[in-house]
Computed example of a mutant assay.
Amino acid sequence: MAGMDGFGTQLMRGDGAEPEVYVKIADVTSLNPPGISRETIDVTSHDSPDAWMEFVGGLKDPGEVSADVNYQPDKHDLLVSDFEDDKPRNYQIVFPDADETTWTFPAILTGFEPETPYDDKASASLTWKVSGKPVIGTGV
């Protein structure tokens, strides 16, 4: 069978201790892992074969992570301290595949947007900027 059900994916927050212990961020309803990208450097010259432009790989951007949660102040307001911190904190995404694939990365919380409409659930949207290379591993 092709594909994987995303249900059960977990977003974890590191405690900064040695060794690092990760605690699940509660009530995540939607999660977008880092969207990595890479710049290219134009190395085209007058000698480029058949007048085709040539490129080499440049800097890599680790992207951003975003998540939506069912907002509960007692479970989510500790993340505001991450917003106040100038240094990246370690986070981890654990996927629900057989190997429990993990993406571990340092990131800075750049956005925390709670919403409490009168006719719907309280929610919050969070955004992190990843700083450095995500480490892909397995939990099994």
Rank of each mutant, 00 (worst) to 15 (best):
residue 1 M to E: 10
residue 2 A to G: 13
residue 3 G to W: 11
residue 4 M to Q: 11
residue 4 M to V: 05
residue 6 G to S: 15
residue 7 F to L: 14
residue 9 T to D: 10
residue 9 T to K: 10
residue 11 L to D: 06
residue 12 M to T: 10
residue 12 M to Q: 12
residue 14 G to L: 00
residue 14 G to E: 02
residue 15 D to R: 00
residue 17 A to R: 10
residue 18 E to M: 11
residue 19 P to F: 02
residue 19 P to S: 08
residue 19 P to H: 04
residue 21 V to N: 13
residue 23 V to D: 15
residue 26 A to F: 11
residue 27 D to T: 06
residue 29 T to Q: 08
residue 31 L to I: 07
residue 35 G to N: 13
residue 36 I to T: 14
residue 36 I to G: 13
residue 37 S to Y: 00
residue 38 R to W: 14
residue 38 R to Q: 15
residue 39 E to Q: 09
residue 40 T to S: 12
residue 41 I to T: 09
residue 41 I to G: 01
residue 44 T to G: 05
residue 45 S to F: 06
residue 45 S to T: 15
residue 52 W to I: 11
residue 53 M to T: 13
residue 54 E to N: 13
residue 56 V to T: 15
residue 56 V to H: 13
residue 56 V to F: 12
residue 58 G to D: 03
residue 58 G to W: 03
residue 58 G to M: 04
residue 59 L to Q: 15
residue 61 D to G: 05
residue 61 D to E: 12
residue 62 P to T: 06
residue 63 G to I: 07
residue 64 E to N: 13
residue 67 A to N: 04
residue 67 A to Q: 01
residue 68 D to R: 00
residue 68 D to H: 02
residue 70 N to I: 00
residue 71 Y to G: 02
residue 72 Q to I: 05
residue 72 Q to H: 12
residue 72 Q to W: 11
residue 73 P to Q: 05
residue 73 P to F: 03
residue 74 D to G: 07
residue 77 D to G: 06
residue 79 L to V: 04
residue 82 D to G: 05
residue 82 D to H: 08
residue 84 E to L: 15
residue 89 R to F: 08
residue 89 R to Y: 03
residue 89 R to C: 05
residue 90 N to I: 02
residue 94 V to D: 11
residue 94 V to G: 09
residue 95 F to T: 02
residue 97 D to W: 01
residue 97 D to K: 02
residue 99 D to T: 04
residue 100 E to R: 09
residue 102 T to P: 08
residue 106 P to E: 02
residue 107 A to C: 10
residue 109 L to E: 15
residue 110 T to S: 08
residue 112 F to H: 07
residue 116 T to L: 08
residue 117 P to F: 02
residue 120 D to C: 05
residue 120 D to Q: 08
residue 121 K to A: 12
residue 122 A to E: 07
residue 124 A to F: 02
residue 125 S to W: 00
residue 126 L to R: 01
residue 127 T to Y: 03
residue 127 T to R: 10
residue 129 K to D: 10
residue 129 K to P: 01
residue 131 S to G: 06
residue 132 G to E: 02
residue 132 G to K: 06
residue 133 K to N: 10
residue 133 K to Y: 09
residue 135 V to I: 15
residue 135 V to M: 13
residue 136 I to E: 08
residue 136 I to Y: 09
residue 139 G to I: 04
residue 139 G to W: 07
residue 140 V to H: 07
residue 140 V to C: 04
